[in-house]
Nucleic acid binder design. Structure first.
Length: 874
RNA sequence: GGCCGCGUGGUGGAACGGUAGACACAGCAGACUUAAAAUCUGCUUCUGGGAAACCGGAGUGCCGGUUCGAGUCCGGCCGCGGCCACCA
């Protein structure tokens, strides 16, 4: 029999067309079966898909196809995170309108995704730049505003003085604007904020219940929210020393046990008291200005020296009216956290110690480490932040840190200063409110109007959506909305007086914070169709990159809560299952002139030490560099289109799932792809060979099976059990291995055929082939359809139910137990599956290896673990 | 600086506390070919003995512990990676 090669290119297009025409991946919201929502993070339409997308969407598709076969009503949609800066950059560089650029990219990428054979419900496709999407976002913004979940307040922005524009943090490189190269300034501007901090406690607590999230992501979110319990202490100030007679300074601390080790107070350069003092002290004003110049660039913070300025103000120790502490302004105190002021305890905080040493403020140790003699315990340049007993602390002496904290809190809560308690217990969060204002064109307009007379006026419902004007130009820097003649200037909806529209647009993270809910009914005229959203949410399995572990996932958790508070859905956690997949990485290649070379232009030969690379074009040698994330800058990318054109989508999908565990990085290699491609061909040959032998579909089941038939049946049912579990647990690399294992066994079984096979064997081959195709269908759906048809089926395997497992076939009547002597394997025994322990023991003691080891003496102990192992202790 | 994760053959990686190295890649040998490709078969952790079948020893970064039994659990090192970070 001659079997022609499987022509992936031709077959894949053909099956995609069939799936499309029959609409088998469309999800009905009124389907009575249990729902299953699987979602991959939607892409930004950059122009072309990359291998990371291929990996991500393949994993999601495997889950979707598997769950569909398991009889669930699967929702598996796709859309576009379509707003964002690259569209504006393209507009500036290439004179394309951001909208045109974005929609061209969407069309191109959609075609690419279609060529992957993903089982998506394209009818639900959404693009966040479509007014039909963002109008609902605007409605919810106004709902949030009414509910007090949106605020306008001053915030710092990165201001590029040359381009006259606000820059995102990632556009600031080494303190300079990425385009102009100008030194970036910090400017205070009124901005819109989402009140995410109102949910700090809940967002933190609920993490404990997200047990199908990676622990790593939960830890990252926990740290980001950054809850700390402490004490808010009001220090009295010596009014004779303060600029305007200010008489107290509030400080947040988590180490109130160390109050008797205090040596100084320090204020943030932005602290109101520092600003007030600076007004009367030019030297201080100059110091503060200097701090602000250096203040922001993250890289500088590591190396920046601790600097301070003694304001001359004096604070009074809360436990000793006669104890005065100098008040400094210091460059390492941030206004954002706590109260923007601290008390410094040099002995037990490294930063405070560095500062005190520099300014000669000394230190007094107040916590003595266990086992240390208090009389000899001194701190020089390493602060001690561990546990211990209190010393040099009057009434706290001898207490543990915890006891001291409690005692200090108790006393200060009951002490009073100016008719208020000196201290209150406080919980502080690192989490800040979410600033969503972006001074950009290509984003969702913020639907408010600024009226000189009425202030901030929401755009009336009837005038929504506020759509972006198309007639804009990008010739000049800055936000085109801000200089638009007609769009910007409008009549106030309230008083009809002159007013102007808000020209800021929303952070694109807002768009991606609720798209998964919109997918449940993208046609509804309200933001959500409540009954449908309540039924189809939450997302059962969300899959995407670890880079979104904090922002996107936290914002989405916030947004869902805000939507619940405003009646749009009855849900708090949007994603019950989360999986973060690893990146696709590749070797890098560098030509002699130092330029990076794309892998497609490189030929690699040899192995190990002898591995050499050269340019295909002219044979010029190329240096093989380290394996890195595929990136445009290193040019170590492989184009999915090229791979799909030469090997087919199934090969690319199979390789993406092979070898590496899905949460880890996968190394893309030419050899690996070819291995996957060879397996595609091998499966095709195997199924065609099996089809020759297999009994016709629906043949009556034989009453008895001979040895080879039974062995084949056991193997295929074992594979079925394993693969089902592997997919359920998203262990795709193990799943792939189990399919290889069975394919090898099946192939060997067919090769062992000596004569004309008997009917029972033919029946077993039919079963094995059908199950094999069903098992690899989620990973290689086109090949599976082709094989399914070759096996004589008239149905689509994509619509078939998952094969039924016969658990009896997993149970062997005799089993082989490994035998250990003192924990080392020395042999094995074959016994009946349900053999009694004594029976096993005597069989084991009869083994030569055991006799030799025991040397005639009785064993000290024989441990028999039923159906697992035997260990003889000699 | 804080928190977290990971160290297994030439490589990617398997392994409910129970036969370490499944499966794949690469490599080597052979079969089929005039030849190559493709395909098929076998070998491939290190090491000692043996012509071979086979028989032994060591082995999951290092040191110790718990256990009949540890890649897996506990403690301490070493190395690599990630995230956060003048956060009081």
């Amino acid at each position: 029999m001659v079997i022609e090669r499987y022509n992936a290119r031709e077959a894949e297009a053909r099956w995609q067309k069939v799936w499309d025409e029959r609409g088998i991946f469309a999800t009905r919201n009124d389907d009575p079966r249990q729902k299953y929502y699987v979602l991959e993070m939607f892409p930004y339409p950059s122009g072309r898909i990359h291998m990371g997308h291929v990996r991500n969407y393949t994993m999601g598709d495997v889950v979707a196809r598997f769950k569909r076969a398991m009889g669930l009503n699967v929702l598996h949609p796709m859309g576009w995170d379509a707003f964002g800066m690259p569209a504006e950059n393209a507009a500036m560089e290439r004179k394309v309108h951001p909208k045109a650029w974005t929609y061209q990219n969407i069309a191109a990428m959609k075609a690419q995704l279609k060529s992957m054979g993903l089982s998506l419900d394209w009818a639900r496709e959404i693009a966040t730049c479509d007014p039909a999407y963002y109008e609902h976002q605007q409605k919810m913004f106004l709902d949030f505003l009414r509910a007090g979940l949106v605020e306008r307040k001053l915030g710092k922005v990165n201001w590029d003085p040359v381009d006259q524009t606000v820059l995102a943090n990632e556009q600031v490189i080494d303190g300079r604007g990425w385009r102009s190269g100008a030194l970036v300034e910090q400017r205070e501007m009124p901005q819109w904020y989402f009140g995410i901090t109102k949910f700090s406690e809940d967002l933190l607590q609920a993490l404990d219940r997200l047990d199908r999230w990676p622990e790593k992501v939960r830890v990252m979110q926990r740290n980001w929210i950054g809850r700390s319990e402490g004490l808010l202490v009001r220090f009295a100030l010596d009014t004779a020393t303060t600029p305007n007679g200010e008489d107290e300074l509030e400080v947040f601390t988590t180490r109130h046990d160390t109050l008797f080790g205090a040596k100084f107070m320090a204020l943030s350069p932005d602290h109101p008291l520092a600003v007030a003092a600076a007004a009367k002290n030019p030297a201080l004003a100059q110091f503060i200005a200097e701090c602000k110049r250096h203040g922001t660039a993250q890289q500088l913070i590591d190396t920046a020296e601790k600097k301070g300025f003694d304001t001359g103000m004096k604070a009074v120790h809360p436990f000793d009216a006669g104890w005065k502490l100098p008040v400094y302004v210091a460059n390492f105190i941030v206004m954002d956290y706590g109260t923007g002021a601290i008390f410094g305890c040099p002995a037990h905080d490294q930063r405070d110690l560095d500062f005190a040493n520099k300014y000669g403020l000394g230190n007094t140790p107040v916590v003595c480490p266990p086992g240390q003699d208090p009389s000899t315990f001194v701190i020089t340049d390493a602060a001690y932040d561990g546990d211990g007993r209190m010393i040099n602390s009057r009434f706290l002496d001898g207490m543990t840190v915890e006891e001291a904290k409690a005692e200090v809190a108790r006393r200060l809560e009951h002490a009073s200063h100016a008719d208020r308690p000196v201290a209150t217990r406080q919980v502080n969060f690192r989490l800040r409110d979410w600033g969503i204002s972006r001074q950009r064109y290509w984003g969702c307009p913020i639907p408010v109007i600024h009226c000189e007379r009425c202030g901030i006026v929401p755009v009336p419902q009837s005038e929504l959506p506020v759509t972006l004007p198309d007639d804009v130009d990008f010739d000049r820097p800055g936000n085109p909305l801000d200089r638009h003649p007609t769009w910007k200037n409008v009549a106030c909806p309230s008083c009809s007086g002159p007013a102007r529209r808000e020209t800021d647009t929303m952070d694109t993270f807002v768009d991606s914070s609720w798209y998964f809910i919109r997918f449940t009914d993208p046609w509804t005229t309200r933001p959500t169709n409540r009954p449908v959203a309540d039924r189809m949410m939450p997302v059962d399995q969300y899959i995407g990159g670890i880079e979104h572990a904090i922002l996107h996932l936290l914002y989405s958790r916030f947004f869902t809560r805000a939507m619940r508070a405003t009646g749009h859905i009855d849900l708090d956690e949007p994603f019950t299952g989360l999986f973060t997949q690893g990146m696709v990485v590749h070797e890098t290649y560098q030509a002699a002139n130092g330029e990076w070379v794309v892998p497609a232009e490189v030929k690699v030969e040899g192995a190990g030490e002898a591995r050499r690379a050269s340019l295909i074009a002219n044979g010029e040698p190329v240096t093989i560099g380290p394996i890195e994330k595929m990136s445009k800058s290193k040019r170590n990318t492989v184009d999915p289109d090229d791979i799909i054109a030469s090997y087919g989508a199934d090969t690319a999908r199979w390789f993406m799932l092979s070898d590496s565990p899905p949460e880890r990085d996968v190394i893309w290699t030419e050899e690996g792809v070819q291995g996957a491609w060879r397996f595609v061909q091998r499966l095709w040959r195997l199924v065609r060979e099996a089809a020759e032998v297999a009994a016709p579909a629906g043949s009556p089941r034989p009453s008895r099976f001979s040895e080879p038939a039974l062995a084949l049946r056991k193997a295929v049912h074992r594979a079925l059990a394993r693969v089902s579990e592997d997919i359920e647990r998203l262990r795709f690399n193990v799943c792939v291995a189990h399919i290889y294992e069975f394919a090898n066994a099946f192939q060997a079984s067919l090769a062992d055929l000596e004569s004309e096979p008997a009917a029972d064997y033919r029946w077993a081959v039919r079963e094995a082939a059908d199950i094999l195709v069903a098992l690899f269908h989620p990973m290689m759906p086109h090949l599976a359809e082709e094989c399914w048809a070759a096996l004589g089926h008239k149905t689509l395997v994509a619509s078939e139910a998952w094969p039924q497992l016969e658990p009896d076939l997993l149970i062997e009547s005799t089993i082989t137990l490994p035998v250990q002597i003192n924990g080392k394997k020395r042999g094995d025994v074959t016994v009946a599956r349900n053999a009694a322990k004594t029976e096993i023991e005597s069989a084991v003691l009869a083994l030569d290896a055991v006799k030799r080891a025991l040397d005639g003496k009785p064993p000290k102990k024989v441990i028999v673990v039923p159906q697992r192992i035997v260990n003889v202790v000699a």
